[in-house]
Design a protein around this nucleic acid. Structure first.
Length: 218
DNA sequence: CAGTATCA
DNA sequence: TCAC
């Protein structure tokens, strides 16, 4: 069975152009919404191969967000620390391949933010249920000379966007279904997080939110 | 915000 | 410590 490809059209929703977030960071409102149903179906298919799981942090805590990955390497956390693994520790098998359409979408989004030649080799898939959150952190486990591209699907969330210091002031930015965020350059290591997901019901995802983040790990 | 918990 |  051939995998469905989708065309590379990061359509702008009516009237909204790129929205600057910070130096080297921007938000593309609704640009992924036209492919949302397909991508959500792919996420669910992928999760049958590499299931969503809640990882443990080095300190022993359990993350409220459920995760799985696709691509050449997947982000993993356990008591020993954070790292990228070429195989899913849960199955011992390689992660599902990154769909070509996903890759193209991430590359196009990065280019719109000024990052030409983005070559993502990993996509972290976060599943938020009501109440799930992501504490303030930096993405430091992959190449910082490549941007991070983030797609949001399903329930809205409040994106916490800070600076290079944990103590820098935070902005609270709503991220809605189909929104794309790109950050790199001087803000690549900015602290960020997600406020506890508020209850709701989305026609495509029900009571949850999916977030895909594309990175270059090697 | 300090103390604590703790996977495979 | 990407938790609580």
């Amino acid at each position: 069975m051939t995998q469905r490809q989708f065309p590379l059209d990061l359509r702008q929703s009516a009237g909204s152009g790129p929205e600057p977030l910070d130096d080297g960071a921007l938000i593309l409102r609704g640009h992924a919404s036209s492919h949302a149903a397909d991508m959500i179906a792919q996420i669910r298919r992928m999760a049958r191969q590499s299931p969503f799981r809640r990882m443990t942090t080095p300190g022993g805590g359990s993350m409220s967000v459920a995760m799985t990955c696709c691509g050449l390497r997947g982000w993993c956390s356990d008591a020993h620390g954070y790292r990228y693994e070429e195989r899913d520790p849960l199955t011992g098998q390689p992660w599902p391949a990154m769909p070509e359409g996903w890759r193209q979408m991430a590359v196009a989004a990065a280019a719109m933010a000024g990052y030409e030649g983005f070559a993502p080799d990993s996509c972290l898939i976060n599943g938020y249920r009501v109440g799930a959150r992501m504490g303030l952190h930096q993405d430091r486990d992959e190449r910082a000379d490549a941007p991070v591209v983030s797609l949001s699907f399903g329930l809205p969330a409040i994106f916490l966007w800070g600076g290079l210091l944990r103590t820098d002031p935070l902005r609270r930015i709503p991220l809605l279904h189909g929104d794309v965020v790109v950050w790199g350059g001087t803000t690549r290591l900015a602290f960020h997080g997600i406020a506890p997901l508020r209850k709701g019901d989305h026609p495509l995802t029900g009571p949850c939110r999916y977030n895909l983040t594309f990175r270059r790990t090697a």
